[in-house]
Design a protein around this nucleic acid. Structure first.
Lengths: 238, 238
DNA sequence: GTCTATAGAAGGATAGAC
DNA sequence: GTCTATCCTTCTATAGAC
């Protein structure tokens, strides 16, 4: 469902567009949709403007009417992901179960399906761009960080809802960040090995960890500041 | 130390070169060294042949004498990483302590230093290329998988050495894969946020997990096949 | 807002002398 | 093995008519 919506288009965002263009014009949306699919499949640098024009069936002049440069188009795609996190990733997971911990794993299950459907060729579109683009543009890096921050916040809310089952003093934001870590690292290895196994095993061990937290809420282990967090690094969210 | 050696050059590999070129020629090595540094800093697509020629102070003709195409040069860089995993990443960690579990964390500490020195602009050179290149070339993807497999095997050996402290039946290869997952996911977020915190916290929670495994070696948690693993996906190594 | 045509730079790769 | 010169393609972006 995740993937289907991601690759099918951008119906949702079109109705939300804040621009002053007349509502009837679908050109901008078609361009963003094409760029989003191509960047997801092949990254940023190896997708050319010509590729985007061909896929969206739009002419060069129109593209540069809406976007000053290729990078602005990428920013628009990242905004699209920002707008679609809840409708396409979080809300479907919330609906599968009322157990907040199971909701977290339902989100991860969505990524597993994405890997399955694409035969491990597409994983997380943001993680993709994070490594390719972080050094090249501050604006892009900022929007990627914001995407991560929103994802983390959504997972954090689920963990907070499960808070009484976790060890007292657990920092849910940090644990959410760790879950994103495992998801991204698992996707990376799944793609490199063209196998679901690294992803599935990573999630299995993550679940073992969560199970151990729930089973032993009073245990503390030496030198592990589960409840502490250096302030300030996730400022992009606020 | 990790980083210093990575960015300084490739003294080691030059002496190992299997090619038939006369030993005195440093040209091939200079090209690989330049390419390795540039790919690490900026990825593959956004580094041009001209960039590599300028940095290595070599002429176009020489580069194409040694490498048929840009992709062959990338394969040579990936071979360089394969050759340098132990001398530059594993051996230094083995020397820091005799406790195998601490050796694992010493490896991760090396990556933390890399992030520190580069102000979170460079992380794992392989993870970098894994997401950018997995879909573009089977040859490249295979060598990236091999790099992951060797890293995993080295960590697995440490875990095997600590085996009696881990839950009976723990699959050390899977746990090693999970450690790579956490490392890569942590590096990704550190770069996206330009902050060490996501990496450090990811490692802190990983340590909490390992501590819980060691503290509760008899506990099993439902539905988590810590000791099982689908066979076959890491075949690249064998 | 959309179209065609094209500028102008940068890209990977090759030729052929030495 | 190394050099210079350059081919040809592809790329991002713009011009200007409609």
């Amino acid at each position: 469902m995740l993937i289907a919506a991601w690759t099918r288009g951008n119906l949702l965002v079109r109705t939300k567009e804040k621009n002053k263009e007349r509502a009837g014009s679908q050109t901008r949306g078609k361009i963003v949709a094409a760029a989003q699919e191509l960047f997801l499949a092949r990254g940023y640098e190896s997708v050319s403007i010509a590729d985007i024009l061909e896929k969206s069936r739009v002419n060069s002049g129109s593209l540069y009417y809406f976007f000053r440069a290729k990078e602005d188009l990428l920013l628009a795609v990242l905004d699209w992901y920002l707008d679609n996190l809840y409708p396409q990733v979080i809300d479907p997971a919330l609906k599968t179960t009322s157990d907040p911990i199971e909701q977290v794993f339902a989100v991860l299950e969505g990524y597993r399906q994405m890997l399955t459907i694409t035969e491990c060729q597409m994983g997380c579109p943001i993680g993709n761009l994070a490594l390719e683009m972080s050094e090249k543009s501050e604006a892009v890096r900022g929007k990627i960080a914001q995407n991560f921050a929103n994802w983390r916040a959504a997972i954090r809310d689920m963990l907070v809802a499960a808070g009484n089952r976790l060890p007292a003093g657990t920092d849910c934001e940090t644990l959410a960040m760790f879950i994103l870590t495992v998801m991204e690292g698992g996707v990376m290895q799944a793609r490199a090995h063209r196998s679901l196994a690294p992803f599935e095993q990573s999630i299995a061990l993550l679940r073992d960890y969560v199970n151990r937290l729930v089973a032993n809420p009073d245990a503390t282990t030496p030198g592990t500041p589960l409840g502490s967090r250096p302030e300030g690094w996730w400022d992009e969210l606020m």
